[in-house]
Amino acid sequence: MAKSIAGPEIERLIQLLAKLPGLGPRSARRAALHLVKKREPILRPLTAAMADALEKVGECSVCGNIDTSDPCTICRDPARDQSVVVVVEDVSDLWALERAKALNAAYHVLGGVLSPLEGIGPEDLTIRQLVERVSKGEVKELVIAVNATVEGQTTAHYLMDQLEGLDVRATRLAHGVPVGGELDYLDEGTLSAAMRSRTAL
C-alpha cells in the first residue's frame, strides 16, 4: 500500500468515489481533488443535491421506477395508456425509452435479469409483482423490452411462461437494421433477424 498523502476524510471520499461506475482509483482521486477545489460552485450544491436525493428519491411500488413520489410520475400520468406496459431490465432502460419518447405507455422494471452465474433468481426480480399487476386485468399488452443477451432472452422466455393463461398480449421489440445503418456493415445474425421481422411498406 502506498503511504497516505492526505487526511482520512479525503481518503474516505476517494474510496467512496472509486465505487461509482466508470471510476477507478485514479479518476476518483482526480474527482475528489476537483470537488475540494471547487468547494462553493460544486461541492456544496452537490452535497445538498445528494442529501435531497437520499431523503426523497425512492422506488415506485407499482413499476419499480425511481422517483420522488410513489406511485411515480409515469404511473400517475392520466395521459398515458396504462393498459400497455413496457417491461425493462433496469431504470436506465426506462430512461432510454423515455428519452426516445418511444411509446406513451406505463413501465415495469424487473430490476435485472435471471442469471445463475451472478446468483440472480426469479425471487430477486419483480416478476411476481408483474404477474400480480397483470392478473388485475387492466393490462392488455406487455412489451417485453429486455436486452438481446443470453440472460435477457432467458428471462423473456421465463416471463412468457409465467404469464401463460393470463389474458394479455405479449410483444417484443424488433431486432434488425439500426436507424441510419448500412446493410453492408451489419452482421449476419442481425441481417437475418431483420429479414425475418420485415414489415409492409
Partner: peptide, 8 residues
C-alpha cells in the same frame, strides 16, 4: 428457468 436457458 431451465427451459428458457435450454432454448438459448
Amino acid at each position: 428457468w431451465l427451459a428458457g436457458i435450454e432454448m438459448q
